[in-house]
Amino acid sequence: MDWVQGIVEYIPANAALLRELTGNHLVQSILPIVFGVLIAVPLAQIARLNQPAGAVMLTASSLLYTIPSLAMFVFLPLVLGTSILSMVNVVVALTIYAVALLMRSTVDALNSIDDGVRQAAVAMGYTPLRRFLTVDLPLSVPVLIAGVRVISVTNISMVSVGALIGVPSLGRLFTDGLTRNYPEQIAVGILVTLLLALVLDLLLVLLERGLTPWTRATPARTARAAALEARTVAA
């Protein structure tokens, strides 16, 4: 099996390059997740409290979501004034997709919270902000993380596309491999990409377990929340 040997020999021979590209790749896939959550959660709350504004935001975000990433990578430098080779373009584009996807599922998650729980918090004297941060938000973590897991997998595969216009990432192994007629290099790129997706997904599962201790203490989660989460995961 020559090609297996080719793959095995490629990795130590190109360790420095692989490390650098993997680092670039991770930055471009993780930053959009963080920014996405930070932007989508407040927007979802606004959308919930103000339905007409929410409808406009959801329509706008699903329209942006429809724009193919390669077109977005080409256009963002024009809008942002960045260099076409800049990682910023990829990060901004993927953040837009993340916000579009997370906002919808977060609205559903916040809507699914039992009103009795909210009223109990109000009765105990929680201010609206404190209630949102300490009651509503933690209770929607399972749905939020289900969305984040979908985003992290797709981001890691999408970041590669930036290599077509010269943004450094593991995708460079693909573009280089094609021009040099070197399938082993492409195979290594695919394997490392799969590995990153797997590791990031495991970390997110652990994060969810850490953030939602009550789901293990009491099995009585509301059927609605469980169903909603299952749907986002299945999808």
């Binding site: 929410g54 959801l58 990433s69 919808r104 609205v107 289900a146 595969s157 986002t232």
Partner: peptide, 21 residues
């Protein structure tokens, strides 16, 4: 249905189905 519910379940499933590439 209201404006938010209108886009309800199917959309949530569809939009959760991952990114464009």
């Amino acid at each position: 249905a209201g404006p938010l519910k209108e886009s309800g379940r199917q959309e949530a499933v569809a939009s959760a189905q991952g990114g464009t590439t």
